[in-house]
């Protein structure tokens, strides 16, 4: 079983997403939540880095945090799966450990 990495900061504010992508092992999963959902959006300065990382890790984003920020599921980068809190819980059970990129 691989690891789940959870990132809660915007890539415009912190390096946590970049560090996570640098160190997440191939085959692991990354969940973007809280301000981290900004990293899941299309057409930002950081979108390419996320899209390029998709060959190595699978991406998820927390829908409730997208909605809260007035963003739209339709603007999520193709290939990132939008999930809710039940999906978040399921993700943690499906991976061997959960690393929070604080």
């Amino acid at each position: 079983m691989s690891a789940l990495h959870i990132v809660n900061k915007s890539p415009f504010e912190r390096n946590s997403l970049a560090s996570c992508l640098r160190l997440a092992a191939k085959g692991s999963a990354v969940l973007l939540f809280e301000d981290g959902v900004i990293g899941a959006m299309k057409n930002t300065k950081h979108s390419d880095a996320v899209a390029n990382a998709m060959s190595d890790v699978s991406f998820y984003v927390l829908g409730p945090d997208i909605k809260a920020r007035g963003l739209n599921d339709g603007n999520v980068i193709d290939g990132i799966k939008v999930i809710d809190y039940d999906g978040f819980v399921d993700l943690t059970t499906e991976h061997k450990s959960v690393q929070s990129w604080l």
Partner: peptide, 17 residues
Amino acid sequence: HQASDSALQFVKSALAK
């Protein structure tokens, strides 16, 4: 910070499951 709110939602979901 949102940490406590996120944790609360997570815990509620986990318990419901």
